[in-house]
């Protein structure tokens, strides 16, 4: 197992280099350092001299990937790509284009993101599984049909509609919770109730339907028939046998997202005014702050790779037949 984990971690290095090259290519295909300088210098009365100074100060006055003017290893090392990428591997994110330390910002913004994403994940998982098992239990009855119709309807509605509709109904008409905003500590509760509820409801259609399919597939297996033949109560059959055996496909989709919960939600955080990493990324994209976009994509990639690794490890936990070697 340890050997497998180490090998997977080593595989991550070329993947992360590839991600870096990709983000560089994509970002600089539509932005030039001059464009970035103009935006950060305020668009008004920006002189070529000021642009040159800004690029120099922020390390954007070098070639992108290959420096033909440099000698030896400098052809690679004296480039924007090298200068901006190598410190990333030591998790040194450097400064944003407005001068703020990105590492510090990530640390402070991680918890609000997690405070929103973790309850959505946990409550959602519990609710979706329960709902899906209920539908599976009542398969081919009016409960099942109505549930599937509901799921399809919920899947068809845009996530933005849930947000705006939820804010309108719960906050504007009923005055139950604040429309947006955030306070740290336990005061965060009243600000999180609505976005968490909307996050859970928004994901319910797709996830419940997917889990229902998995459960139905499992319920037709021989071991389920055997369990029933033994006279086990249906809840034991469902929660002890079917659920456990359905965990492998569920884990595939679930464990991988656990590390990325820190990355936050791009839309919800903006609408609910939650100062997390999702809104941080969106702001950076809007203001063409390459340093932040780069750091967030890199961090997202690392966490995703970690999630995949955790998924593999979790297989061995739910299925003794799986061995990692």
């Amino acid at each position: 197992m340890i050997g497998y984990v180490l090998r997977r971690l080593l595989y991550a290095i070329p993947i992360l280099i590839g991600v870096n090259i990709l983000i560089f290519t994509l970002f600089f295909a539509v932005n030039t350092p001059d464009n970035m300088a103009r935006i950060h210098l305020g668009l008004k009365r920006v002189t070529p001299d000021a642009i040159a100074k800004w690029k120099h100060e922020h390390g954007y006055d070098k070639p992108l990937l290959f420096n033909a003017q440099a000698k030896g290893a400098g052809k690679i090392t004296e480039t924007i790509f090298f200068g901006k990428s190598v410190p990333m591997f030591a998790f040194q994110f450097g400064a944003a284009d407005d001068g703020r330390d990105i590492g510090h910002d990530i640390k402070t913004r991680m918890m609000p993101s997690l405070a929103l994403a973790a309850p959505v994940f946990l409550v959602g998982l519990l609710l979706y599984i329960t709902f899906a098992l209920t539908l599976a239990f009542f398969r081919a009855t009016y409960v099942d049909y109505a549930g599937v119709v509901l799921c399809v309807a919920m899947m068809s509605i845009s996530g933005l509609f849930y947000i705006i509709g939820g804010q309108f109904l719960i906050s504007k008409l009923l005055h139950l919770v604040p429309i947006s905003g955030y306070q740290y500590g336990t005061d965060a509760f009243k600000f999180l109730v609505l976005p968490v509820a909307i996050g859970v409801i928004g994901g319910m259609g797709g996830s419940s339907r997917w889990y229902r399919t998995i459960f139905l597939e499992e319920m037709n297996r021989d071991y389920v028939r055997t369990a029933r033949a033994k006279g086990l109560p249906e809840r034991i059959v469902l929660f002890r046998h079917v659920l456990k055996n359905a965990m492998i496909p569920i884990l595939t989709g679930v464990v991988v997202v656990i590390p990325t919960l820190f990355m936050g939600s791009l839309v919800s955080e903006s609408f609910f005014g939650i100062p997390g990493l999702g809104s941080y990324t969106i702001d950076a994209i809007r203001s063409q702050d390459f340093a932040i976009v780069h750091a967030m994509v890199f961090l997202g990639s690392v966490l995703y790779i970690l999630g995949l690794l955790l998924t593999d490890i979790s297989y061995t936990w739910v299925d003794p037949r799986v061995r990692l070697s």
């Binding site: 906050s171 504007k172 005055h175 604040p178 429309i179 947006s180 905003g181």
Partner: peptide, 18 residues
Amino acid sequence: YTLEKEDIPYWNKFQQGY
């Protein structure tokens, strides 16, 4: 001064007196 990126929450909170 609260960060309010979207118009809808801003407008609704103004109407609520916040």
